[in-house]
Amino acid sequence: MNLKELYQEIILDHGKNPRNLRKTDNFNKDAKGHNPLCGDKVHVYLKLDENKKVEDISFEGEGCAISMASASIMTDLVKGKDEKDVKEIVSDFLQMIKEKDEIQTNLLKEDEKTKLMCLSGVKQFPMRVKCATLSWHTLTSAIDRSQNEINTENMDL
């Protein structure tokens, strides 16, 4: 286990000063996520334009440094991407957290990939993986409107 890998500067920074922690005006998609085990809560708001591009994304919520940083980095990275690409990024991120070593998608720039890789430290902390993935699952659910509320107890990771 390596705490330094988990609590990197970027994570601490995003955890303390989360970007896009607000509620988008005139959002047209949203979803809530909840991790009942630790009480983490997140509400993701999306505003897609007519071409299904993310015009704005924001979130409200409370949780540990990992969950706040993860949501903050996520909202930063998907802004401006279209819906299909957002889904590809989400799926790539979730695979990286679960099994893969790298972020593979070409949709992100190198420095963006590096930022996301900062979250890979949670792999060594199985109890904390859900903290990192909650906002991402919630984003998927907002796009799909598949579930009103994501609950980390009903899904793998």
Partner: peptide
């Protein structure tokens, strides 16, 4: 102050 309970638990665990 400034540290969420889950982060405390992880750091203490080390």
């Amino acid at each position: 102050d400034g540290v969420h309970a889950h982060d405390i638990a992880t750091i203490l665990d080390e």
